[in-house]
Write a protein that binds this DNA or RNA. Sequence first.
DNA 1: TGTACATCAGTGAACGCGCGTTCACTGATGTAC
DNA 2: TGTACATCAGTGAACGCGCGTTCACTGATGTAC
Lengths: 200, 200
Amino acid sequence: MGRSSQQQASENRAKIVETASRMFRELGVENVSVSDVMAANGMTVGGFYKQFDSKDALVAEAFSLAFDQSLDAWDDVYQQADAKAENRASALVRQYLRNTAAKRRCPVLAFAPHVINGGADQASVEAYKAGTKDLFDKFISEMKGATGGHATPDAAERDSMVLFAAMVGARAIAQAIGNAPWVEAIEAAVNQAAKQQGHR
Amino acid sequence: MGRSSQQQASENRAKIVETASRMFRELGVENVSVSDVMAANGMTVGGFYKQFDSKDALVAEAFSLAFDQSLDAWDDVYQQADAKAENRASALVRQYLRNTAAKRRCPVLAFAPHVINGGADQASVEAYKAGTKDLFDKFISEMKGATGGHATPDAAERDSMVLFAAMVGARAIAQAIGNAPWVEAIEAAVNQAAKQQGHR
DNA sequence: TGTACATCAGTGAACGCGCGTTCACTGATGTAC
DNA sequence: TGTACATCAGTGAACGCGCGTTCACTGATGTAC
């Protein structure tokens, strides 16, 4: 096991970021060690520091990747909704709430503990803030297309913001509580609100 | 420093739970060590295990206390709203979103990382689930008093659930992002929705 | 193109650190007479 | 009530463990001639 080629090293580096992004989303940053990430790629821990300055540096890159993937996933949902001539708000909310795959957890929620509790360095915090705002903007701007029956454009935008907060909140509660009738009722209510908002 | 009296020991135990509950809410369970809690009470770590079986046992008691305190705080908000003949939904949502004191963080959000990531034992998880459902029930049942202009009672209850999710989601985002215009816009939108829902 | 050497991606043991927990000990409190 | 002894709340050092990071080392890769 001597030196790897530059191309191989570059591929390994990219795989490490992808693996870390997935594991951080699934288990939380604090519950995934550098050794865990390296082992998941069939490598040992020492080599990590040839590619990254620190775990913090990996976290920042993993955050950015996760938000990019989420933005792409939202695009896909919108396109599928358009293809079926379906309400975009309803499709996105339904997909967001239905998504129980741990690997695809919403980065806004999955990374929040690391950001809130001061464990994240400046670059990671900025990646988190930028990524969260990008998702919010995508949600709000797409919702604007469905303002038809609203009293005013301002009212439509306010309703979109409430729906965004409700979508995130419902998912946060569902993740923490798990399957329970009252949680499913919240999810159903948010889905219903998304459906109605699109039709107004 | 020999043996303390039974009364003193009992008071110390209660203070430890109170301190732990406050620190867990403020900093997160994972970021507060048993030593931290004991030091905050002017004690050393060894004595902890004369009063508790484990950190997990303390966590479960601290969770229950935090939810009890939140329920009491919500009662206070309702009573103050009633005294001013103010909309209960609006008063609670405004207070919930305005509350930036770290010591009084919403336990639903503050404890979620510990529960979601598998760090919590069974007793703690059950205390969390029960406490969260209690807060939800208090919110929904009080909101039912304001169903006046709704199409159906079902629609009113659905709107209450959406508002609860939006309130929690808005607070989660605000805690993670901090002060930003778009976050304040979300909070304003949720406050507005609470005001309108009460009047319908 | 072939050769000699420098480079450096990856290895795996070791470091310091903080954590939850244990333990021998202390001495004031509680109890039996 | 007073005395002798057992109890046990709290002390503070120590344990094992996993973490992020460092380091001497390996040997295939990259480069200079």
